[in-house]
């Protein structure tokens, strides 16, 4: 279980005239779902990129259980600690569903047979039946693709799930299903789930809500 703390984080894009994030402070506890809402261009996704380890902040710190995340640790952090889910699903287009979920296990050098068994287990746990395992992602519905992405997160055994508009391209039924899975990951498996969304209704389903305005984060705590 990992508690992620964002401490006075500033971020400015290269060639940008002003900072996108101007001293963001937040705590994302383990075992809870957190949401970040805000208008388009507020910097929600930027914060999520930093949490996902895609880049380092211009200034400030990101702490994992009190230990600072450094630039040299980002590859390892992305491999072992954080998993990213996106509204575009981010699946390998030329790999089958099973091969997509196998990927983090191959990175971890898991033995092949064991890796296949584990990948299959995770796919079944998110409701992807076996007959879909050898299909390419393009042959799946949006909801199924998002669940495959979640199964890959489970295979990576990531403690932090960073979801950027995970239900952006899904209908209501699939959106609810995805939210149910994410909520289960947090509450029953102790993962730190952070969701960026512009959907306030979806945000209200999370345990913690943050609002990003003018580069600063404001919190709306509610009891889980």
């Amino acid at each position: 279980m990992i508690e992620l703390v964002v401490d006075q984080v500033h971020y400015q894009y290269p060639k940008a005239k002003k900072e996108t994030l101007r001293g963001v402070d937040a705590v994302f506890p383990a075992g809870k779902t957190s949401s970040i809402v805000g208008q388009s261009g507020a910097g929600k996704s930027t914060l999520l990129y930093l949490i996902s380890g895609l880049d380092v902040c211009t200034s400030g710190r990101i702490l994992l259980n009190g230990k600072e995340l450094l630039a040299r640790d980002l590859d390892s952090y992305r491999r072992n600690t954080v998993a990213t889910i996106s509204q575009s699903y981010l699946l390998f287009p030329t790999r089958t569903v099973l091969e997509n979920v196998l990927y983090p296990l191959q990175l971890a050098k898991t033995e092949k047979q064991a890796a296949v068994a584990e990948a299959t287990k995770h796919l079944l746990s998110v409701g992807i039946e076996k007959e879909l395992h050898n299909r390419l992602p393009s042959k799946l519905s949006g909801g199924e693709q998002q669940r495959v992405a979640i199964a890959r997160c489970l295979a990576a055994q990531s403690q932090i799930i960073a979801a950027d508009e995970p239900t952006g391209n899904l209908d209501e039924e699939n959106s609810n299903e995805v939210m149910r899975i994410l909520s289960d990951l947090a509450h029953n498996q102790g993962k730190t789930v952070i969701i960026v969304t512009h959907d306030r209704i979806l945000a209200e389903q999370t345990d913690l809500q943050y609002r990003l305005e003018n580069g600063k984060l404001y919190s709306n705590e509610r009891n889980a």
Partner: peptide, 14 residues
Amino acid sequence: STEILLRLCLGEKR
């Protein structure tokens, strides 16, 4: 390029 991006995002070394 998508394959490369994903592999980097998933933590594989450049």
